[in-house]
Structure formats: C-alpha cells, structure tokens
Amino acid sequence: MPSATTTRDPAPPACVLDRQGLDALVQALRARGRTVIGPTHRGGAIVLEELRSAAELPYGWGVELDGGHYRVVRREDEAAFAHSAGPQSWKNYLLPERVRQWTADRAPDGELTVRQERHPPASYAFLGVRPCDLRAIAIQDRVLLGGWHRDDAYQARRNGAFLIAVECTEPGATCFCVSMGTGPAAGPGYDIALTEVLDETGHRFLARAGTAEGAEVLAGLPQRDADAATRTAAAEAVESAAGRMGRSMPPVDLHTLMASSLEAERWDEVASRCLTCGNCTMACPTCFCTTTEDITDLTGDHAERWSRWESCYDLDFSHLPGGPVRQSGRSRYRQWLTHKLGTWWDQFGSSGCVGCGRCIVWCPVAIDITEEAHALHQEQLARRAAGEGTP
C-alpha cells in the first residue's frame, strides 16, 4: 500500500546514492515534515528509533542470531544494513502496543465528561524496511483495513507512511523468507527501494522508485546514473542471500499440513517446552490482536480506556462464561501455529508468516517454528507409511 499522496506512475530508471546521498535522503524527508524511523545501534541491539541523520544508522554492525539468542557483533566493513530483523518491527509504529482511547472525569456535582483521545496524524518515513517486513505491512493492511471493521487509527498512521525498503543481502541464521515467498528481493508496496553494495569500488546504494512521490524525492538527491557494475553487484548480492537462508519450511502446502495435523503427537512435545509467555506474538510483525482495559484513579473520579496488544497465549484470550476455551499450553500453541500457517489463508487469503525469524530468536526456550513445521510433516509421513494418516 503506497502513501496516500502517491500514485503508481511508471518508475524512473535506477540511480546510485553514496553515503552522503543517503543522508540527503533523510534530510529531504525531514524537510517534508516526516519523522524518519530507522535502525540504529542502542543498548546492545539494533532497534528502530527516530533518525536525525543517516550517520545514526548502524554502520559496521551485524547480528548473531539463533533460537533464543541475539547478539550484536562488529563487522569488518561499514555496511549500514547488514543485519536481520531485530526485536521490533514497524508494527510498533503503525499499531502501537498501547494507545489511550478516551478519558472520563466526574465533577464534584456529579457531571460526567467523556473525551475521546485524538492523536495528530502521523507522517512517518520508514527507512530500512526489509522485504519480509514490507510483506508484513501489506498483511496488516489486509487485516486492519480490508474487512468490515476497519481500524481508523491504523489507517491514519498507514496512509501517511513513506516506505523505503532495503533488499536483504545478509540473511540471519533464523531467516526463512525464501520459503514464504517474501524476500530477499523487495516486492511491491515501497516508495523507494535500496540495495546496499559495498565492494572494492566503493560503498553505495542502488535506488529505484516505486511511486511518484518516491521518484520526486529521489530526483532531488545528489546521485548518479546506475552503472552496469552496480546493477550486477546488487542483483548478485540479493541472489546470494536467497541461497544462504538460515532456516526453511518443509516444501509442502502448509495450509493443508496444519489442517491435517490437529491431533499430532508433536503438540505434546512442544507444549512441554512452551512457557505460553506470548513473546512470539509480541515480536511477530503480523500478529494483530488487541484488547481493551479500563483503569481508574483511587478517587474513582477519573477513568481511562486503553487499547493494548493481546496474545492468543493468554488464558483470558478465549475466555467465555464457562471459562477459557483453550486451557492447556498445547491448545494455545496449536492455535497460534495453525492460525499463522493455516487458517490465516481462510481469513485473509495469505499466510500470516513472512519468514522474518523473530519468533525463533525471541523465544526464551528457543522453540523454532520451522522445526515444528518439519516435525509435523515428518509425523504425517510416518503415519501415512503406517497406513494411519490422511490420504
């Protein structure tokens, strides 16, 4: 979904920006009144924060990833985007974790005043959106804007967002975007796409526009025409990344696999390890569930309603008058995985997983969504071989 102020005009030829040109891009977006959000090195992690210049990008920093393991490491070069998904995603800005909806105050005479919370329209520019996260934004658009119950607050934030995708050239050990068809090349939906190239001829970024506004912004930057060597180097870097994914899904129809594995024994094994903490849902860039909570002060004269993220691992998530529907950790993990890889298709016409690997990294007991999918597939094959499974 492009910015509301842009149209899908034919993109101009690619150009090349150097590091000064990248900083000029940040300054041009700030001059347009946009808050530029991008990756930076803070507190031992690559996090998303407001950038005042491209100098704040994590030049020379990479990450070491595994199940339940994340570490920032120093690189031998000065690459700015040679790191994979961090603890945050762009969901933190488009669908904030906690938002106040209204306040109510009772005067001494008993009169009640209710005020709806009004938030000024956001005007974000997201710099460094990975192809997997670009797809995640498109999925959230479908969920929150495409049905009967549109989220107007999300739409206001989303309409103002200018997306600068950065194609992946350094996949992490937990990445599996190729399996999900979401990377490492940038798909549609960006305003500008960059591919970082760092070789003996210099440090530069191949840039191309995806919208008219993107083309307009690029046209005002110091640049040079894209030469054949840079185009080739960029294409080869992305192609190489596709062959170096750290994880993969089984090469089967995951929707069908989930539907035919509801009684698999594997659910008991994973439930013995799962803490039902909900970290995977909090880190996931597509999980969208929210709930509301009402709070009041000690006097009872002031009350507020807040919207906050919710997790299907919470016992109260499926609470009915008779109690929680999914009381066991087994049933709650199964609900999350079968929805993410299976019934999401029935609801929204796509998978709910983009292969970013965050759920693997930020699981405190290193449960691996790809390992679980492979285990379910192997169990199904074993059952079929024994004449017990579905045809």
Results as ranks from 00 to 15, higher is better:
258 M>H: 01
66 D>Q: 10
200 E>K: 12
110 G>T: 15
279 N>Q: 11
263 E>R: 09
321 P>Y: 10
142 R>D: 10
319 H>A: 10
336 W>T: 03
272 S>D: 15
158 R>S: 09
211 T>M: 00
148 W>N: 12
225 D>P: 04
90 W>G: 01
100 R>M: 14
321 P>G: 00
50 E>A: 15
299 T>R: 04
203 H>G: 04
132 C>W: 00
33 G>V: 03
375 A>G: 12
122 A>E: 14
270 V>I: 11
124 Y>K: 06
92 N>G: 04
4 A>N: 03
296 T>Q: 13
171 P>G: 04
374 H>L: 09
386 A>S: 11
36 V>D: 02
76 E>W: 02
107 A>H: 12
208 R>C: 06
95 L>N: 09
263 E>G: 01
360 I>C: 09
68 G>L: 11
95 L>I: 02
243 G>F: 04
102 W>S: 09
100 R>Y: 08
81 F>Y: 12
151 D>L: 05
250 P>V: 11
54 A>R: 04
304 E>F: 09
133 D>E: 15
88 Q>H: 14
278 G>C: 02
22 L>Q: 11
96 P>M: 09
361 V>A: 05
153 A>K: 03
10 P>N: 13
184 P>A: 12
31 A>Y: 03
128 G>P: 05
128 G>V: 10
19 R>G: 05
212 A>N: 14
